[in-house]
């Protein structure tokens, strides 16, 4: 769970900050939500500026991250509600949406969202044939057939594919 420094000078005041995406749109965010991101917290501690420009996060992704931060900063919500929000948050999202999300959480250092998204991506890959993963994510196999056979030979015991899904 994310913890915030309750006594810190930033969280004590009910202030807002403006975050600008790389598309130029601006989002008004409460400071208590913003500081759940370790990087935003650092920026806010270092400078007085209330406008933060994020040059590598687009509108759509930023809006999702902010929705997540605001929910987790809401003291009125129970941990159970936050957990079910997390479940909802990642379910049904396309893989490339998740990809931008995980990159953004990595940049912003929102550890628990990064884990939630990585877990969701892992669930997609779990119990799948290598061929399925390659097809689904369009991964180019750049091994020579000999090199691939060599890797399979090395850990032959792990290549029992009977139980794996290919759809």
């Amino acid at each position: 769970m994310v913890t915030t420094d309750e006594k810190g000078p930033l969280t004590a005041k009910k202030k807002s900050v403006i975050i600008r995406s790389c598309d130029g749109d601006e989002f008004l965010v409460s400071e208590s939500a913003a500081v759940l991101s370790t990087s935003l917290k650092k920026i806010l501690e270092e400078k007085e500026d209330r406008l933060i420009h994020l040059s590598d996060i687009d509108n759509k992704t930023l809006a999702m991250v902010i929705a997540y931060l605001s929910t987790h900063a809401d003291d009125g919500l129970s941990d159970d509600l936050k957990r079910s929000f997390d479940q909802e948050f990642v379910s049904g999202k396309e893989f490339d949406v998740l990809k931008y999300l995980v990159l953004a959480t990595d940049t912003l250092q929102v550890t628990c969202l990064c884990y939630t998204v990585a877990k969701k991506m892992a669930d997609i890959m779990k119990n799948k044939l290598v061929e399925w993963v390659r097809r689904e994510f369009d991964i180019q196999n750049d091994y020579t057939p000999e090199a691939e056979a060599e890797i399979r030979r090395l850990d032959a015991w792990a290549w029992d594919d009977r139980q794996l899904e290919d759809d």
């Binding site: 290598v130 390659r134 991964i139 691939e148 850990d155 792990a158």
Partner: peptide
């Protein structure tokens, strides 16, 4: 991030990921 993802799947699947590409 990729390591963080494959840490979350059964290790046998994670091992198989080594064959996806170089």
């Amino acid at each position: 991030i990729l390591i963080s993802i494959i840490t979350r799947i059964p290790t046998k699947d994670a091992l198989r990921s080594s064959i996806l590409s170089k």
